Simulated assay, not measured.
Amino acid sequence: MKKTFSLSLLLVTSAFINPCFAAGQHSFALSHYGAPSDTVTKATEFMAKRANELSQGRITIHLHPSNELGSLDTQIDAVRMGTIDIVVGGNPYYTGLNEELNLLDLPFLFQDTQHVAKVLNSQIGSELLNSLEKSGLKGLAFYEVGFRDLTNNKKQIKSVADLAHLKIRTTPNPAHIEAFRAWGANPTPMAFNEVYFSLKTGLIDGQENPIHQIWNNNFHETQKYLSLTHHAYTVAPMTMNLDRFNALDEEDQKILLQAAQDGAELEKKLNIEENKLNLEKLIQYGMEVEYTPDTASFQAGAKKAWDDYAKKFGDQVIQQIVGMK
């Protein structure tokens, strides 16, 4: 009921979000999850500026951060329907459209940012991004949420045994849910914009997100312990309504793709810088940090998630990715 209402609201307001195009002029609404201070906000602001500059003013992008147009599920559905033009959302929110995308969320699949770049810039990355066209979405670029770390308010996570019975918010991705279940936790998927309140009220014990997300969304106000597990990497595809993209002339298509990629590259650089700065802020705030958790103890649960994926899609691509590191 809530989702239906949200979509109806978007349909009613679409005339305001997507004004009619004058000849040669294009105005697009871009929605995302990031807080005003988050790197995805800075990156999409840069993308909008680049698109406007490269098109000599023909393309204007209006930004809607902080999930102000609804949950990510609602935003992605709205882009498919054409009531929002462009969205940036974590990969787990796309996996309902194409289960093969679960590949990118497998725990401990990626070693570091260089390994991620090799994969996403390869044919594997291109094919996964292009696979969304079957769902009416044009993949413009891979933005990122980043490498995920664990926080909670009960105890420090030094090994997988410390996760036992903790209620941890996860994404809706089956690979995440099954991994945390195998690790002994009680995985609790929920919308990102509900996490802070749920932590504050004790509805959940902890959550898992990159350092910049933990700081920019004030999760440190409710969490005592941080463990740098880097247990999974999350991409955040930027997608556009496919029909709207195809309606553009070739030059403007190239401009949007270039501007989107420029913004994605900026975001990745900002995340490296801000994760270092924000970790120091979290420590100064009083969070206790486990720098070297026993990640080997997580491997059995990670392998189960890999095996579950391989049963559906085979392990050929998994092995190709492992071989790229």
Rank of each mutant, 00 (worst) to 15 (best):
T170I: 10
T234D: 07
F142G: 07
K268T: 12
N246L: 09
G82T: 02
T188H: 11
A247L: 03
W183F: 14
G89L: 06
D294W: 10
Q114D: 15
N241R: 01
N102V: 01
L199K: 11
T234W: 05
M287F: 06
E100A: 08
A302E: 07
I214Y: 05
Q319P: 04
T83D: 00
G125T: 07
P187I: 11
Y94D: 01
Y196W: 11
F180G: 00
A35D: 08
V119I: 10
F197E: 14
F142W: 15
T170H: 07
F298N: 03
L120T: 13
A305H: 05
S126V: 03
E53P: 00
A164P: 04
H64Y: 15
F245K: 00
G301C: 11
G90R: 05
F313M: 02
E100S: 10
S122W: 02
N152F: 03
G34T: 08
V160D: 05
Q258R: 12
Q111A: 12
D77N: 08
H231P: 06
E280P: 02
Y225V: 09
L54Q: 04
K304S: 11
S71G: 06
L69N: 03
K325P: 10
E288H: 09
N18E: 01
G263C: 06
N241I: 10
A117D: 14
Q320C: 03
V119N: 02
V40C: 13
I76Q: 01
H26L: 04
Q207R: 09
A51H: 02
H220V: 12
S31C: 09
E99P: 09
F108P: 06
G96P: 01
K138R: 11
F192N: 10
I76N: 06
A305N: 05
E45I: 01
P174D: 08
D262M: 10
A51M: 04
I321M: 06
I157F: 05
P237C: 07
N218S: 15
T222E: 15
N91M: 12
P174F: 04
P19Y: 00
G323K: 07
V87N: 09
S37L: 11
D308S: 14
K224M: 09
A161Q: 14
A175C: 07
T83E: 00
K281N: 13
K281I: 10
T60C: 00
Q213K: 10
K311L: 13
S66N: 14
T229Q: 05
D85V: 03
A117F: 07
R58G: 01
K158D: 12
L129I: 10
I318R: 06
T60Q: 06
S131G: 02
I321V: 14
F108A: 07
Q111R: 14
T74A: 08
L72D: 15
D162L: 01
G70C: 04
D308P: 01
K42T: 13
P293I: 04
G24N: 06
K268D: 09
A161D: 14
A164C: 07
S8F: 12
Q75C: 08
